[in-house]
Structures are given as structure tokens and as C-alpha cells.
Design a protein around this nucleic acid. Structure first.
Length: 301
DNA sequence: AACCACCGCAACCGCGAAAAG
DNA sequence: TCTTTTCGCGGTTGCGGTGGT
């Protein structure tokens, strides 16, 4: 089991790449393609691990890489997509042509987290007022809010997967897409792109609020938030389209009426394709009163 | 001017999944 | 069907740059 070392560790070079190495790699890939990364270093005359070559190519040398600061649109997309899929950087990168998963990951870990922290500090007053909402089950607000945020996000993801199976195949391709999700990135039609925004919009609407409160209150009764938990890995849940336990839990924990209204509205949104107003008129993240907890932003601390 | 702390980014590491044999 | 190999992903590390004291 496991996997053998990617290279034979015989004094292969590590660390920063030199311009000469870059040139060798670029020349080789442009001439021969990037088929076998294991053999590539030898064939290209590089004293590097194949893995290192692949990383260098995909994250830096690839000709279609878009460098420079993230645009506001990209920033918003990252926020929205992260709210849906979590730390699935490759999926997020697939929605942002020219951006690499590594770049987005770094961007998130520096800029976005920082901004969210700043946003949180602005809401500290509200946080104090709402501090009692958690029921006092845990002594660590940050951990509790992290868990709450993850719960809300995963429920949205579960809901998305459920809807995906009931709408068009094109829609379903959104969440099902993974590393090879260029189908989504390349999808010019707004339908394939719609789910994240629709769900965030609905999630932030009154209907979503109603459903959310129902779901969260039910969830609190059944399984108290564990303060010591890290963020729940998305991979722990069944893939989209699957009738997963996550979906079952959501539908079971939330009121059926709220859930149906939520689904109906989502379907309506998809039908009308009223997606043109994306980014407009709704907050990128649930506001404090929407989630019933002003200290939401500590989730990213 | 020198030192220190912090930040951002490129690169590495280890794991799981997929593909190949 | 099982084992081995390869690839891709996400998390983490470490170095260089920058700003503050």
C-alpha cells in the first residue's frame, strides 16, 4: 500500500528553479507535451523530481497562466465558490481561467483570511450581544463558530447535490466536476455556472433564513457542536448526485416545508436564469443576523 | 544603519484516487 | 481481482522581501 517515493532521492535538486531549468522544462513540454512526468526530467535533462517539474509547470510556467493581482470579480468568485465547496482549490481554480489552485490557495490564506478577520473585528460589538446564542455548550467561540459555519456550508453543498440530481445534467456537472472540471470552466452557458450564486442568494434570502434556522435548531438538538473539531472535510460527504447521508440528514433535520420552498425557489431561479444579477444585491456572506451569529467570521481565524 | 518581526509566495511533502499491469 | 505505479490535490514549510522600531 501507500506509494513509493516519487523520485529515487539520489541527490535530485530541490528549491527554487533557475532560469536555465525553466527553459529546459518549457522547451521540452512545448516540444513533447507533458505526458509522463516521471520520465520527463530525464528526457528534458533536468536533475529534478518529476513531481517538482509538474508543479513548476502547472503553477508557474504554463503559458496560459494569468499573473498579477486578483480582480474584484475573481475575489468575489473565490469567496462564493469557497462558501460552496470549501478548500477545493482545484475546483475553484477551474472556475477562474488562468489561475492556479496554488495561487488561489495562497490568496485565500493571506488576503481573504485577513479581510475576513478585519470584517469580524467590526462586528465584535454584535458578537458580544449575540454571544449567548450558542447555548454555552462550548467554551471556545471560534471553534464553535467554525463548526457552525462548516455546518451551514455543508448543508448548502448537500442541497446543491440534491438539486443537481433533479435539474438538468448540465447543472449536475457543476459539483460533480473535479480536477477535470474544465467542462464547467468552459461552459459558456450560465446554467452550469448558476448553482453557486443561486444557492448563496437563496441561502441569504428569507426563505433560506427560515430553512436555516429550522435546520440548525434541529441539528443543535441532535448533535451538539464539538468544540474540538476541525473543519469537517468536504470529502467526508458523499459526492454530488449521490443520495448521501448528508442530504438525508439535512432533509430530516430541517422542516420539510422550508426545504421544499427552498428547492422550489432554486428551481425557479434556474428556470428563469435570473442569474444576470450575479454579485448584485446580495451579500457574499450571510450577514450576522442572517446566521444568527455575528461572530461568524471567526470561523476563518 | 542594524535588527527584528511579519508577510507573501514558491516549492515541498504526504496522502488518496485513478490508471496500468 | 489484486498489486504497483503515476498523477493530482491540499496542507505545510521555508525563504526572500518589506516595513517597523
Amino acid at each position: 500500500m501507500g506509494r513509493t517515493p516519487c523520485c529515487d532521492s539520489k541527490a535530485l535538486k530541490k528549491g527554487p528553479w533557475t532560469p536555465d531549468e525553466d527553459k529546459l522544462l518549457v522547451d521540452y513540454v512545448q516540444a513533447n507535451g507533458s505526458g509522463n512526468w516521471r520520465m520527463l526530467p530525464k528526457l528534458a535533462g533536468l536533475n529534478r523530481c518529476g513531481k517538482s517539474c509538474r508543479l513548476r509547470w502547472t503553477n508557474y510556467l504554463r503559458p496560459d497562466i494569468k499573473r498579477g493581482p486578483f480582480t474584484p470579480e475573481e475575489h468575489k468568485s473565490i469567496l462564493q465558490l469557497h462558501a460552496i465547496v470549501g478548500n477545493k482549490w482545484s475546483m475553484i481554480a477551474a472556475q477562474l481561467p488562468g489561475r492556479t489552485d496554488n495561487e488561489i490557495k495562497n490568496y485565500w490564506n493571506t488576503n481573504v483570511k485577513k479581510q475576513l478577520r478585519q470584517g469580524h473585528s467590526a462586528a465584535v460589538g454584535e458578537q458580544a450581544a449575540l454571544a449567548s446564542l450558542g447555548g454555552g455548550a462550548t467554551s471556545c467561540p471560534a471553534a464553535r463558530h467554525m463548526a457552525q459555519w462548516e455546518t451551514a456550508r455543508l448543508e448548502a453543498e448537500a442541497r446543491l447535490s440534491l438539486l443537481s440530481s433533479t435539474t438538468s445534467a448540465a447543472t449536475a456537472s457543476f459539483a460533480a466536476s473535479s480536477s477535470s472540471s474544465s467542462t464547467v470552466a468552459a461552459g459558456a452557458d450560465h446554467v452550469t455556472e448558476a448553482p453557486p450564486d443561486i444557492y448563496l442568494r437563496l441561502w441569504n434570502s428569507e426563505v433560506g433564513d427560515s430553512f436555516r434556522k429550522s435546520a440548525l435548531s434541529a441539528g443543535r438538538e441532535e448533535e451538539p457542536v464539538n468544540a474540538s473539531d476541525e473543519a469537517v472535510p468536504v470529502s467526508a460527504f458523499a459526492p454530488p448526485g449521490d443520495d448521501s447521508s448528508a442530504v438525508s440528514n439535512v432533509t430530516a433535520s430541517a422542516g420539510a416545508d422550508e426545504y421544499q420552498v427552498f428547492l422550489d425557489l432554486a428551481a425557479e431561479e434556474l428556470e428563469l436564469s435570473s442569474f444576470h444579477g450575479r454579485h448584485g444585491g446580495f451579500p457574499l456572506f450571510p450577514s450576522a443576523d442572517m446566521l444568527g451569529d455575528a461572530s461568524l467570521y471567526t470561523a476563518f481565524d
